[in-house]
Design a protein around this nucleic acid. Sequence first.
DNA 1: TGGTCCCGCCAATAG
DNA 2: CTATTGGCGGGACCA
Length: 398
Amino acid sequence: MHKRNGIEMSSSPPRSLDSGLRHHSYCRKQKSLGVLCSNFVSLYDRDDVELVGLDYAARRLGVERRRIYDIVNVLESVGVLARKAKNKYSWIGFSGIPKALKELRDEGLRAISGCDGPCDKEVLEDEDEDIEGQNHDDGDEKLSKIAGASIESSFSKARSATDNRKEKSLGLLTRNFVKLFLMSDADTISLDEAARLLLGDMSDLSHMRNFNAAKVRRLYDIANVLSSMNLIEKIQVEARKPAFRWLGTKGKLKTDNTVMVSLPLIDKQLSKRAFGTEITNVETKRSRLSYTISKKSSKAQLRNQDLKECNLTAQKQLNMKNGFVFGPFCPAGVTKVDDHFEESGGRSSQDCESLACSLRPQYHNQALSELFSHYMEAWKSWYAELGQGGNLQQPYDM
DNA sequence: TGGTCCCGCCAATAG
DNA sequence: CTATTGGCGGGACCA
């Protein structure tokens, strides 16, 4: 039960998947960790779920088991999941995030005050505002301490290989990455900065270049799933300078000059999930989520930020219904969802088909409004068709 | 082009 | 030993 999937090495692209078809071009984006994470969450984020079976998840989501590990590792770091046993995790859900974050914070505080001597325990200020993050000196040092990795050049010990391995785990990297945000009051951290802090600064040693490049890939992985969880968002601080903004538990919505745009919708937990525990400007009144956006932008130019969030919300909403993400026009397979963990390796192809696609708001601000209406359209028609029925059965799991 | 990051090989680890 | 985990980096994708 491992590699199947006729696909061999990366040398032979996914083409030739079912010889003839190859219809709508293979879209890499639909296979991103972020999308997969959304689907994963959609699959389990229900009240009656407590156990998460890796095999089941992989099968239902139509992906290699390997990918599930990636997701699970970062979700666990953020408290959404807890390892229960081999092949088994317990689903904590979004409600577990605050606690996990608090622990990370404490851990971080301990790291700075604990270690070497005097080190005042003020919550490192790090005069942010320098979005450029140019001058790093003292506050920077603290951060890198928190980030763990940092100067591992300490001759200390021949890091018992095991530690060495663990040190590079996605999980640890995730936790340190999150700590960076929690401990610094700057809510924006550039990719470069994060890489430097998390992976140690040895960029000057040419032979270390590869090493760093490899690690940065992990950062992208992590960022993708964290973004899909709405914990961070990717932004672009001046060309060629990607950065991540911490959204964490506070939805950042405008307050003044606002106009209400209400989206049909689901439940109040929704806003919790989308914006964290402190629901500030989001009003949730019986099955209707109102969203505020700045007035002057009433026309086609809503602020990017607003559009993005709007879309995120929409996505969430779409995701909610019976726990699945409906790709563009493919509610296909929703009715046959379930068959509660169909045994025998028969990987259900319809799953891949219906789950694979979903949108990825964080990276496509331009087309957001289009996508948005597109989705609402699809959603409405689907809902009308299937809606009332009451036979929106939930998928089982284990 | 070069930033992103999917994919799956295969080495650690767990059982 | 077999199965589960997951580091790792080649190279495809796409802005």
